[in-house]
Nucleic acid binder design. Sequence first.
RNA 1: GGCCCGUUGGUGAAGCGGUCAACACACAUGCCUUUCACGCAUGCAUUCAUGGGUUCAAAUCCCGUACGGGUCACCA
Length: 549
Amino acid sequence: MTNKELAELMYPNVTMTIKDLEEKFPKRALKEGAIVSRYAPSPTGFVHMGNMLSCFIESFLPKQTGGVFFLRIEDTDQKREVKGGIENIINSINSLGIEYDEGVVSGDEQKGAYGPYIQSQRREIYDVFAKYMIENDIAYPCFCREEELEETRKFQRNNKLRIGYYAKYARCRFLKNEERAEKIKQGLPYTIRLKSTGNFNHKVKFKDLVKGEVVFPENDQDIVLIKSDGIPVYHFAHLVDDHLMHTTHVLRGEDWLSSVPIHIELFKRFNFEQPKYAHLGLVMIVDENGTKRKISKRKDQDFTVLNYAKVGFPSGALQEYLMTIANTNFEGWRSANPDKPLIDFPFSFSKVGSNPLFDYSKLVNISKNYISKMDKETLYNELVNWSSKYDLELNDILVNNKDYSLAVLNIEREKKKPRKDYVTYSDIKKYSWYMFNDLFNKEKKEYEWQSVTDLDEIRNIVKTYFTKYYDIGDDHDTWFDKLKLLAKEFSYAEEVKDYKENPSKYKGSITDIATIIRVAITTKSQTPDLYEILHILGIDTINERINLL
RNA sequence: GGCCCGUUGGUGAAGCGGUCAACACACAUGCCUUUCACGCAUGCAUUCAUGGGUUCAAAUCCCGUACGGGUCACCA
């Protein structure tokens, strides 16, 4: 029985050829140097920062080179699939502000001419390749059952042999086509295995974009290419999909490095052009025991991208952070080019570090700076957008009081050294709630009085100030001069220095006076510039608040 | 266990054979200041996992050891 006859028996309905498929999905018309890359997750858990790191770089390079970035869902493992997995992935990508040219848009919508982009929908395509492999002696059906495989592994372990399905241990490789046909006709389940031609004692060299030249023994394992349910494993899907979709660069975690010899053999057997590989370090965290380990999709829910979006880290700040762990010279570039868009950064594979530790305080610092550099309109729009998803109360206030909100957001913003107290969007409510009457009125007031706590004295000072001195039309200097006059009237030193030199002469200093006014109006002892706060609040609100004392 | 990758301060790291081992974050102290947030200044690895070798000279090149990570599935 010939291979062709066996292939016909196994795949009677496959009439297309690989050539047909290649014609259907022709080479992309892109300019020289354009990178085609993809994010290819499996919907089997949360999307964490490590996943997003590779997704981000995968999207960055095509964008920079005028290439194509697409999202492909690798759902070939139904057993571990998580419900809502695909939506979760898409939401995560969106929350980071990453856009893709082709791929899965939602559970039942896809875009792009090289699809389908969900592997479970590509069965017919894989079958064409499978049939070709049977015909051309590249692969064969294997009828070994789990228990048998486990047994030979056990034997190999016990005898200190290399573990796997290779050489004489690859039993089904030696079956005759007649025997194969017979078993198939009987309806026995089978997988399709690669008929490897590799030699473990020979070396394969390949150039990894990140690691440089890496040397491995050739693959000689007859690995499973297609599972008994007819669905391909990763290695085979990688071959077929990345060939047909014309991927030029495969970026993935370092945990894939040791399967490269398999991929090399596969591409070689089909005479396909091999994509370039870049194996990125894994993002690590320190766990409860104080040891480093890679972030886990299943355990580390705190590191989920959506969590960061929820507390309100700007997507741009997250991108900046990812780039600082992706390329070790990014920080230097950023400080030399503070105003350039991120896309101008000359990313370089040779500057990819190894296994970075997720550094929360670094993220905080980056985010703080990022928000401080936004102009008020941008911040306002971002905040409206964020709050529409995560804080409807704030959203209402922002939308209904646009000009007022802009003024609040602009406090100490448009200056050479802007304030840097907001780390995330949720901080804005946390630090500025007293600027909004709706929030202020529902909060129970806990006045943070400092050195002066005598309420009669406080009431007296506040009342005098607002009846006698305060004028909303004053400029900053005049305003502060008047505050000094108030201090003088109540025997507080106008200058801190004077008070320090001669404490017994005064009841306190201008500091105490400013604090009293600050706390009386906001309840907080620590706020941004008092002058601006009073100015924005307006005289009506000020009066309302004085009456609460 | 086999096979790979890696190891510079609390963290990310620069350095690629030749001055005191950049820089950023964090931390500490001080200055500035009406509070805070900024900003500024100073401090923070006698040493580059470790042992040996090559060299006039090594964090930088070579070998061994230890440690960390990854991978050896009909998971990706």
